[in-house]
Amino acid sequence: MASSPQAQPLLHDGDLPSGLDFGAVVAIDTEAMGLNPHRDRLCLVQLSAGDGTAHLVQIRPPRPDGGYADCPNLKALLTDPQTTKLMHFARFDVALLQHALKIDVTPIICTKIAARLVRTFTDRHGLAHLCRELLGIELLKQQQTSDWGAEILNKEQLAYAASDVLYLHALWAKLKALLEREDRMALAQACFDFLPTRAKLDILGYTDPDIFSHRA
């Protein structure tokens, strides 16, 4: 089993540089102070074109009025209808990005949804497990719960953050083949298309009660 290499991510302060080309599909992940988008601020956005390079945008703390410093290049990419955003557990990342940056993120592919649709013989659909099983790559997760709001992120944090996007293109290629084999690609696409709406429902508080639940 190969361990993930020590990536050398490119760290950007506040926004992406102008002129970067991520191609038709960009892998995206986020890091925040916690798992509640209403309470926990967005700290980092990771992106990769699947070329072995990760770009990390450090999002600065909110302004006194509660908003975030503007990041026009990042927002333009996230809202570009010609660029597909490839994520793992997109439901969280899309809700966080839409709430923090006041944008609509679309179109989307989610490798966790894809895995759940075709790997029904297991309940293990985390990114680390999928990379191990499908790619033979061992992701190191020790920094998962570290302080992402720090002014200066250490090299271990940066390497961990980069690893969450560096393998998504290869992982999607494996899962896409399985979706096609099991004739579930159309179903997966319908799920992906619904994700921005599902994220908006989450932000509005429709997780409990879930409006799709049979409960009165």
Rank of each mutant, 00 (worst) to 15 (best):
G14P: 04
G14C: 09
G14A: 07
D15M: 01
D15H: 00
D15T: 02
L16P: 00
P17V: 12
P17H: 09
P17E: 10
P17F: 11
P17C: 12
S18W: 08
G19Y: 00
G19A: 02
G19W: 03
L20M: 11
L20R: 07
L20H: 03
D21Y: 10
D21M: 07
D21R: 10
D21C: 14
F22K: 02
F22V: 07
F22L: 12
F22P: 00
G23V: 08
A24N: 01
A24K: 11
A24F: 01
A24D: 11
A24L: 10
A24P: 01
V25T: 09
V25C: 07
V26S: 03
V26A: 13
V26G: 07
A27E: 04
A27G: 13
I28F: 06
I28L: 15
D29M: 13
D29P: 10
T30S: 08
T30Q: 04
E31C: 12
E31W: 01
E31T: 03
E31H: 07
E31S: 11
A32M: 11
A32K: 03
A32W: 00
A32V: 06
M33V: 12
M33N: 14
G34F: 08
G34P: 06
L35E: 02
N36D: 15
N36E: 14
N36T: 10
N36M: 11
P37M: 13
P37L: 14
P37T: 05
P37K: 07
P37I: 12
P37N: 08
H38Y: 11
H38D: 14
R39D: 14
R39N: 13
R39E: 15
R39Y: 13
R39V: 14
R39A: 15
D40L: 11
D40W: 03
D40Y: 07
R41N: 13
R41M: 12
R41P: 04
R41F: 10
R41Q: 15
L42Y: 04
C43A: 14
C43I: 08
C43M: 09
C43S: 13
L44C: 11
L44P: 01
V45H: 04
V45N: 02
Q46Y: 10
Q46C: 12
Q46K: 07
Q46L: 12
Q46D: 11
Q46T: 08
L47E: 10
S48P: 05
S48C: 12
A49D: 03
A49G: 13
A49H: 01
A49L: 05
A49W: 00
G50E: 07
G50P: 07
D51W: 01
D51Q: 09
G52S: 08
G52C: 07
G52L: 08
T53Y: 03
T53D: 09
T53F: 06
T53E: 14
H55W: 06
H55S: 12
L56W: 02
Q58I: 05
I59D: 01
I59M: 13
I59S: 01
R60V: 03
R60P: 00
R60S: 13
